[in-house]
Nucleic acid binder design. Structure first.
Lengths: 156, 156
DNA sequence: ATGCATGCAAATGCTTTGCAGCGTG
DNA sequence: CACGCTGCAAAGCATTTGCATGCAT
């Protein structure tokens, strides 16, 4: 897991700094999200973790994900209306969200990374990170006839 | 309602262009979201519309909001984990989201508005709009002792 | 030792869906 | 006049919660 550039040490530090306990469940849930290339849903994370810790339960996954998000290690990504999904906060990236099918695609942008955080935002509190969220119509949904409903995303 | 800069004509055009029917429910739901300064939840929108169209039902509000979102007139804003909220797409703005309490604050930024959409995003499809999403810790949650749980946001 | 974290299972609601009648185009 | 849209009520299901036990500190 160290191979993919994930630092479990950072996780340990973050947990301890926040006065939270280091448990196998937390380690594994984090690892799964961190390794994932997409935006795993809670069930997907649950399934993956279960292969390592068969006794883990759904609610622990939920609780863990919120805990990790609260200390900045993961972020809920919401396809909004769909079930919640999670992103690890390593390697900053941005989202293209299709307004029609709800699909979320990642992209990176050097020019955006250089962009300074507007000070207006800093007035609200501590800024941990930022990403651009772009709404539009994906190639698939642009095609006539492809009237993809939100609940049956034809993927793209 | 024209007073607040909302163009009902745009709504009519958009609906017709998409082959959708113009109904009082759609007009009113859109108006409520467009007028709102914050990020109304579905229930809040429902309550507001009900004052004008007492017979409207919750599911119509849901359906209408998704419909409007699919043609780009509103956007689901997800406090993620919380219930869905909606934003009208007039006047571009950005979001500061507190990782701890989930509160979403708006801000505008001239410098950001000038920022070009990275072409990487355009590869995915048609771009309708973009906004920056900043995660961090709000002033309230920064204070020690204020361990605001996600479900009981102490507001800020 | 001391409590936070976990698992289990039941509860909670938000959100969706099927269908008949109505209103828009 | 035809078909999309609405309302109603019931179903679906993602997410949360209470509690006893286990484990990290």
């Amino acid at each position: 897991m160290e191979a993919s550039g994930i630092s479990m040490d950072d996780l340990l530090d973050s947990l301890r700094r926040s006065g939270l306990r280091v448990t196998p469940q937390r380690l594994e849930v984090y690892r799964v999200v961190a390794v994932s290339k997409s935006h795993p849903s809670v069930v997907e994370i649950y399934e993956a973790v279960r292969r390592i810790i068969p006794s883990i339960s759904m609610d622990t996954v939920y609780r863990t994900l919120w805990t990790l998000s609260q200390i900045g290690l993961t972020s809920p990504v919401s396809s909004s209306g769909d079930r919640v999904r999670f992103d690890s906060n390593r390697s900053p990236h941005h989202h293209f969200i299709c307004a029609k099918c709800g699909e979320i695609r990642d992209f990176t942008s050097g020019s955006l990374d250089d962009m300074p955080i507007p000070r207006e935002a800093g007035d609200f509190g501590d800024v941990w990170g930022a990403h651009l969220e772009i709404r539009g119509l994906c190639r698939n949904c642009r095609k006539p006839g492809r009237n993809s409903k939100r609940k049956e995303p034809e993927h793209g």
